[in-house]
């Protein structure tokens, strides 16, 4: 038995991006929970995510050049109607723009598998 955070992380570790979907109101949920924040139902199932998303907001967290010079931080709206914090890779952080179509990829960061995005 594991809670929703651990289940989500375990799916990522297997290379799968999965979201919870509420059987009550049929909406997807992120971040993982034990009940639906839209309707209160506790009938939630894990479903595969499309991985298709759009940049909703973006910034560059600036750092000194010796610390890497800055990295992208953005919010991505997934096709399923949920939003997540992430970063877009493969282009300069300041080139990331709201409205860009992006695709999820699971990347290893230290000991954790995390979701990042590439331009579609």
């Amino acid at each position: 038995m594991s809670g929703p955070d651990a289940a989500y992380a375990a799916f990522l570790a297997e290379g799968r991006l999965r979201l919870q979907r509420c059987e009550g109101c049929k909406r997807h949920i992120f971040y993982p929970r034990v009940l639906c924040p839209h309707c209160g139902s506790d009938s939630l199932n894990w479903v595969d995510a499309s991985g298709r998303g759009t940049v909703y907001a973006t910034t560059v967290v600036r750092k000194r050049p010796e610390e890497g010079g800055g990295h992208n931080l953005c919010l991505i709206d997934l096709e399923e109607g949920v939003r997540m914090a992430s970063r877009v890779e493969g282009i300069a952080p300041e080139e990331v723009a709201i409205g860009m179509a992006v695709t999820a990829r699971i990347a290893q960061q230290g000991e954790d598998a995390i979701v990042v995005f590439d331009l579609s």
């Binding site: 955070d5 992120f30 971040y31 909703y56 907001a57 973006t58 910034t59 967290v61 990295h71 931080l73 953005c74 919010l75 997540m84 914090a85 992430s86 970063r87 709201i98 409205g99 960061q109 954790d112 995390i114």
Partner: peptide
Amino acid sequence: LIYEQPYGPRYPISSYALATSRHMY
């Protein structure tokens, strides 16, 4: 905040910067 922290936010500034980006857009 375990679903934001992996992406290196600089709280609280980065959150308000995201909101600003959206308002400008």
